[in-house]
Amino acid sequence: MIDVQAPLLTVDHLTMRFGGLTAVDDVSFQAGATDITAVIGPNGAGKTTMFNCLTGFYKPTEGQLALSRNGATHYLERMEGHLIAAKAGVARTFQNIRLFANMSVLENLLVAQHNKLMKASGYSIAGLFGLPSYRRAEREGIELAKYWLDKVRLTERADWEAGNLPYGAQRRLEIARAMCTNPRLLCLDEPAAGLNPRETGELNELILSIRSDHEVGVLLIEHDMSVVMKISDHVIVLDYGRKIADGAPEAVRNDPAVIRAYLGEEEDDALPPDVAADLARDAAQPRDPGA
């Protein structure tokens, strides 16, 4: 088992219902302070719904989501959507990339620093008159953006329209944009979807370096087992909205319940565990990365 000394995020009996459908059913888990926690499961297991509850797009039907930051505890289920990002420091990316497509790469990163810059611009009053305090803040904002541009190798293309970037670069930019909000918890929704093996390798390094250089925990939804197994410290498996496994990657990989969830009931004892795990990986790969 992994050691959750000081949990960053404590999810307690989270349930989300849409009419008669229970998308997330009584899920509880903890994510460690600077752990990379992966959430996996077959399609429709409720992973993205859980993310949407965490980031305030859905109000959970039941349950508690506690996030501790700088000694204070924020209860996400009670907070307004934008405050979850602004106060509790939860940033996210989206399964189908949501960049500001007609704005430049650099502008995307500046919009992410909105609250900080807005305050510095005296809610636009000081900015309107071009006071030096605001100009300094904007320079700092650009410096931070530059740092992240370097990190995701987009400095050259800083003035491009975000929508013109190739797919992989858009994924990286979305991560950089999330990091520009100075988050405590970074939620990545299928960051490797549609990437080729080389890009996937780079993504792994990016996520690992984010974790090691910044005080941030990562919560990751992923289908690509090569990402999950390589970088996560802790894996949670959902199936039909329920948590069916929770533990270190190795343990989860060999968990019969997990194998069953991916492969169905019949075959589970006919196969040796590592063959089954390999099959599970194949089954979990999105068939058409472009779709």
Binding site: T55, E80, A101
Partner: peptide, 30 residues
């Protein structure tokens, strides 16, 4: 005023809102 605001955080957030308001909320923009 319009030209000036466009270059301020407020104006940038307006344009971001026009592009994708869901992403705006995820960045902590009210």
């Amino acid at each position: 005023v319009s030209l000036r605001i466009r270059r301020l955080p407020l104006g940038r957030s307006w344009e971001a809102l026009r592009e994708d308001d869901v992403a705006c909320q995820s960045l902590g923009i009210n």
